[in-house]
Each structure stands twice: as C-alpha cells, then as structure tokens.
Write a protein that binds this DNA or RNA. Structure first.
Length: 421
RNA sequence: CGGGGUGUAGCAUAAUGGUAGUGUACGCGGUUUGGGACCGUGUGGCCCGGGUUCGAUUCCCGGCUCCCCGACCA
C-alpha cells in the first residue's frame, strides 16, 4: 500500500485521555480510534494486525481439529435462565435490551449457553464425540470500569472454543490439545518467552482453571513464576495445597506482574446438565457431555504485544502479525530516477507476495524515519539518491536497529521469494 | 460500585470575573531536503444545564465525559 493514500495520520503527542502505553502508541500511530471509554475502532493498520492475530489463532484452532462457526450477539434469555445466568445479581456485566414487543434480549458476553443448546441438535450418540467448535465473535460486557486501553473493553471480539467429550479422559486430551495450541499461538505472536501457563481460580465454573499470563509491567494480575518448569500460579490460588499439587515451594517461584492473554476451563457437566446436552453410549445408556471452554481476545493480545515489545520510538511488531513486512521508505523522490527505482521495487516486492507499505510521500527524511519507527514494521528498506549511487539497499531491522546493505536479489532472497516471481 | 482527578482549536497545552495565548496539525507564499527543518501569513476553541453577577471559560450547584486507585472480572 502506498502511504500517500493511507487516510490515517500519525501524531507527535499522545492523547491526554489515555494513560496506557498500548492506547497511546496505537492511537499515535493511527492503528485504532477511541469511540468512547472501553470501545475502540480499528483503522487500516490496526485491522491488519488484528486480522493477522486472528489468522494465527484460526490456524492453530484448525490444526487442533477445531471447527469454525459464528453464533449471535443477540441472546435469548430463556437459555440463560436455564443456567441461572440471566440474573443481574449473578452476572453483572450484561447489556440487556428488548424487542419492539417488549420481550427482553441480551447481548452475549460469552456463549456457553447458546452453543450447548445448539449442539443438542447435533450430538446424540457417543459416535458424535468428541467435538471442538469455535468462533470469533463480538462480546459485550458492561464493565463498571473499562481501563488500560484495548486491554479491557466493553465490546471486543473473542475467539471462544468449546470442547465436547464423552469421558473425563477424552476431555483431558482435548484440554491438553488446546493448551498446546494456545502455547503455539503465544509463541507465534512473539510472546512465547514471557507467557506462562498459570494455575488459577476456576471462577464459577470449577475449582481451578488455567490462564495464560504474559509477564509485563502493564499487567493487572500478580503471578508466581517458575521459569525452568514454565509454570506459574496466580496469586488468587497461591496456597500451600496448590503448591504441593504442583510440586513446587515458594522458594522456586518469583513474583511477577502479568496480563492474562488466554484462559482455558474445564466445565464438567455444568452446562450439559442444565440444558440437557447428552449422548447415548454403546449400551444405550444416557450420559451428560463433558465440556470445556477456551478463550483468547485478539485485541487484548495486540495490546499486550504493544506493551511488551514496543520501545521509546514506537511500536515493534513481530513478523507474523505485523501490518506489513516491509516499510519501503523512499527519500529524494523529487529525483525521477530515485522515484522510478522505488516505484519499481515496490511493484516487484508486491508482485512477489511481500506485504509492503511504501512511503511515497514527499516529506522530509526525519519525518519519514520517525513515522517508520512509530508504525513499527519489522523491516525498513531505504531507497534514496545516496542508496542509488551506492547500489545497495539499506535494510534496518526495527526490533534491533541492525542495519544491513543488501542487493535487491539478497533482499528478495531474504523473504524467500524470487524477484521475478 | 467506593475514592481521587479531569474537561479550553483536529491534537497537546497556558492564562483569565470584562469572551482567550502558544506549540503542533491544516491552507497559502518562500527557503530547505538522510532523523519530526525554518521564515512569513491565514483558518480554527472555553463539555452541558441552572445559579450568583452589570458581566461567567473563570465562582457555586447539578449532570455528563474521560483518566487513575480500589472492588469486580463468567
């Protein structure tokens, strides 16, 4: 994409109504727009990152045999009344609305109830199990206090997967499969080295669950980490009993601030019992389905990546989720030979399948470099009169600042593509 | 939901009981051109409602907004 055509603009100053680093940088760089507290729109660059994160998650869910669907934001109270979760005293984050005829409706804050009821149409026999079904769907949560930029919002897309098993053993297998898939996701978005499977409270579902917690100063939780074993314990369940279960002592653990980027729950038969989701075994006996639920919020993940990897000059995106792979920064565009070369390089890279943001604006070099640092694309390729005279492209790695002089052929080879592809 | 702040131009900010200045952004002219350059010039603003007052952006009351701390976080 030509940057001269990008409608968003970078800002020098952070907005006064944002304190969090993620919101400040994402707004300054033109990735997101704040509609109101806890409600953000995604602009072209931000949507690209968001979609790339979604693609990583989708890929891992599919590899784990997840089947993608889309449920609805509008929710039928009846199915929630069946589990006791329609009551505002039980669930205080409901956004509720009504039909013209006065019938109440809810805006979904999660989807255990509707998917459990829906699966009754499709699961009847042990032969129908196991199953894993997921979606990317907008959740609405009437949080009393939205905060920390995109980390805790009132409207957000969540990837929620639900597993259905015929036995505890089968459930445990699915649970472990999802745990591995989650670890793959966090590694691919660049947080693998600082994200830990964390023993946590099960909330209303069960006694315990697992959270994936990324160690960051922006975190809202306190966890105790054992890096060698790659495990952690949330402060809320930091008890002697849990320590003993996990085979660690307080001396093995260090306290860290962390942000939750994923959560996996064993639901048991809580929902299948309440809503009548059951199957017949080989003997014809009826049993409730054993369920699990597994959530990741792509926007929150984007926020945690921002908090974790950005530096004083701006955003720093890992290659797999960056809005573009290459930021082609062309200087001296008033020189028609330089412009022709830059245009040609842009066309060739794009044709070869490399995602390029081409800064073809006629503005000063300083502004271009500052914008490039702020936007945070992994590789900056500089084209200028000087570069043209020397015959070698200047390639700067955003994360490290490393500068390399490459020929065009070497640049293409670097991306594993052929120049004349 | 408890507590503390906040609200002035697109953005960031200053001052002020007599309707507001600066930076940036934007328009125009000119000089510049590898780290947000400079000169000139122009456009553009006091959250909403009520009260006090000759007069309110300023003081008072109420509301709303946004931020932060705590609680909550399915």
């Amino acid at each position: 994409m030509r940057q001269s055509q990008l409608f968003t603009k970078t800002r020098r100053e952070a907005p006064a109504d944002e304190q969090s680093k993620n919101a400040q940088l994402l707004i300054r760089a033109g990735y997101i727009h704040k509609e109101m507290a806890g409600v953000y729109a995604f602009l072209p660059l931000g949507l690209r990152v968001f979609n790339n994160i979604v693609a990583v998650i989708r890929d891992e869910m599919n590899k784990a045999a997840g089947q993608e669907i889309t449920m609805t934001g509008l929710q039928d109270p009846a199915v929630w009344q069946a589990t006791g979760r329609w009551d505002d005293e039980v669930v205080d984050v409901w956004f509720k609305t009504a039909l013209k005829n006065g019938s109440p409706l809810g805006l979904g804050f999660t989807h255990e109830e509707p998917i459990t009821r829906m699966m009754k149409d499709h699961i009847n026999s042990y032969k129908d199990l196991p199953q894993m079904v997921y979606q990317f769907q907008t959740k609405f949560r009437n949080e009393v206090r939205a905060k920390s930029g995109v980390m805790r919002t009132r409207e957000f897309v969540m990837k929620d997967l639900y597993s259905f098993a015929k036995s505890q053993e089968e459930h445990d297998q699915l649970y472990n499969t999802m745990a591995t898939a989650y670890e793959n996701v966090f590694a691919r978005v660049g947080l693998g080295d600082r994200t830990f499977k964390t023993f946590a409270s099960g909330g209303v579902f069960s006694k315990y669950s697992h959270e994936y917690q990324t160690v960051t100063d922006a975190g809202e939780d306190i966890i105790y980490v054992n890096r060698e074993k790659g495990i952690a314990i949330n402060e809320e369940v930091y008890t002697d009993e849990v320590l003993a279960d996990l085979g660690v002592t307080k001396n093995d653990l260090t306290q860290e601030k962390a942000s939750e980027v994923g959560n996996i729950f064993s639901l048991g038969t809580r929902f299948s019992d309440a809503l009548g989701l059951s199957f017949k075994d080989e003997a014809g006996d009826e049993h409730p389905v054993i369920m699990g639920s597994y959530g990741i919020g792509p926007a929150r993940l984007m926020g945690v990546v921002t908090e974790s990897l950005s530096d004083e000059n701006g955003l720093v995106w890992p290659e797999e989720i960056a809005p573009f792979s290459v930021h082609l920064v062309a200087l001296n565009l008033e020189d028609s030979e330089v412009r022709d070369w830059a245009d040609g390089l842009y066309d060739n890279l794009t044709t070869a399948g490399v995602e390029v943001l081409y800064d073809d604006r006629e503005v000063r070099a300083g502004e271009k470099f500052a914008d490039s640092d702020l936007i945070g694309i992994p590789y900056r390729v500089v084209v200028s009169k000087k570069v043209k005279d020397e015959g070698l492209l200047e390639v700067v790695t955003r994360a490290t600042g490393e500068v390399r002089q490459l020929t065009e052929e070497e640049l293409f080879a670097d991306f594993g593509v052929s120049r004349n592809a």
